[in-house]
Design a protein around this nucleic acid. Structure first.
Lengths: 144, 144
DNA sequence: ACTAAATAGGATAAATTTATCCGAATAAAT
DNA sequence: ATTTATTCGGATAAATTTATCCTATTTAGT
């Protein structure tokens, strides 16, 4: 479904969010440890997310990654996915037709539309704050 | 969502089905032409599908691929996807946790479950015959 | 038997994704 | 100023996916 890079990106961002929500900045090392991801590869992904303004990166000693508290409710899962995998997954045709729509549908267009919209809805309406709070309360987990 | 191989596999199988439904056997060449896919790569995918008994392959002159009329209603999209990509896409965790379930959920588990089940339902209840008939009637398309 | 047309399957190449390494840049602390 | 901890970014490597090529095998027709 999502690329590995995107999976790491989602987990990393939620981890950063859950710490930012508690006023803590986290380092790459801490992130990859907590989400169980390869450090250098995770760094690349965080670079992308920082460039796309999903997370803030702070260089130098005591640096790391954080998200402004005020942003936590504004950033949606879709922002992360879009930055890393693009939006084909929740906008494109299920079997890769370039032109696939109501008047020129692929064979699974109508059924797939439902899945895609469900996914799109999930991604576009789930904000970081709620995800972070679930992790903080122990209601959900980022690894294993 | 699906791999390229799986997209080709789905399109190829529907194309074979739509011809089998009309009593016609089709060749690799004809398939890749009609679904707009690389011939040799498509051959590999058809090999897999033949091994998994999704399609029948007939070697030699006048050979090609076909599906028994009686099978058209029995084969579901899920059979194709499972043979090529496996079932992780409609059974696994959205962000790749090995253990992700009600008592140890990832942060998107509950919302993602809906998408996954919708997808699973689509794949497991859509049979080849209905897809083939739509293509034959001009209601849906396999390329562009 | 021979030929021609087709799939099977092994070897390999190209492209993309995933992953690592290392020096540069940055910033705080001493 | 120097040291130290950190991210940035370029280069490269490893793994996987996508794609091609070529020979073997199979089968129908002659």
């Amino acid at each position: 479904m999502f690329s590995k890079a995107c999976e790491y990106g989602i987990k990393a961002t939620i981890y950063i969010a859950s710490n930012s929500h508690e006023g803590k900045r986290v380092s790459l090392k801490g992130i990859s440890k907590h989400i169980d991801s390869p450090e250098a590869f995770t760094a690349k992904i965080l670079q992308i997310l920082a460039r796309e303004n999903v997370v803030n990166s702070i260089r130098g000693i005591n640096g790391g990654f954080e998200i402004e508290e005020s942003q936590l409710e504004k950033i949606q899962l879709a922002d992360i996915v879009k930055a890393i995998d693009g939006d084909a997954i929740y906008k494109g045709c299920g079997i890769g037709l370039k032109e696939c729509n109501e008047i020129h549908p692929c064979p699974i267009h109508n059924d797939f539309k439902i899945v895609r919209n469900e996914l799109r809805n999930l991604l576009e309406t789930t904000n970081l704050k709620s995800l972070a709070m679930d992790v903080n309360s122990g209601a959900s987990f980022l690894k294993v």
